[in-house]
Amino acid sequence: MTYDSTEARGAILARLRHTLAGPRPIFRDRSEPSAPPTVPTAVTRADGDRRSLAKQFGAQLAEISGSYEILEDAAEAGERLVQLVKEWSAEMGAGAGEVPEVLSWAARALPGENLAGFLEESGISFFVPEDLHDESTRARAARAKVGLTGADAAFASTGSIVVASGRGRSRAASLLPLRHLVLLPMSRIYPTFEDWLHTLRQDQALGSYLRVSGQIVFITGPSKSADIELNITLGVHGPRAVHALIFDDAW
């Protein structure tokens, strides 16, 4: 018998329809509801003003082995970023005068005005790959020890961020290097997933947001595994460290 997807499709759907059209209720417990809420209830909670949300975000992130700093503005965040990268590369044994390379999103994809100019003059090389399917680009990206990204949204109740793939926003920057730096403006911190989803839904933007990018990822702390006797080990495939540079972008 030769395979035909359309035929398989027809057979599967027909059987399902036949079953569901039957007179019998399909679940045993008829008292259980089958109408989910239209506005989801938040599972975890957080509230307060922007500062307090930033702190809760940081505390949650720290709880799951991430780390954070709260900075006054984008300029301060930029300075701190440069300082951190230099510290780390020294730690990782880069020779004096060696320029550490950061696998980064494009400046225009990063939050914070005027940050691009500042970073350019920092003496650090920010590698923004164009096409990671290219052998040499991929090899270079794989060597980077630090990744730098922004985030579309973040959630105070869990310490999670959302990144979307796209032009100038590589998936690799938050995935391949051992350390992941996130530039996070306070205005993007929502109390919970549900608050954010609800906002997008009300603005009729949720569908297009999800579909415009090839991939949206929620990241909650550093990569970890508990496969060896439930011992938590960090950085099994993704970054071992996730550090959020939260800055106030109120004006």
């Binding site: 799951i64 869990t158 090839g214 991939q215 949206i216 990822v217 929620f218 909650t220 550093p222």
Partner: peptide, 11 residues
């Protein structure tokens, strides 16, 4: 966990 470390949504 509150949530898993990664939740990848590929469209």
């Amino acid at each position: 966990q509150n949530v898993s470390v990664y939740f990848s949504m590929s469209s």
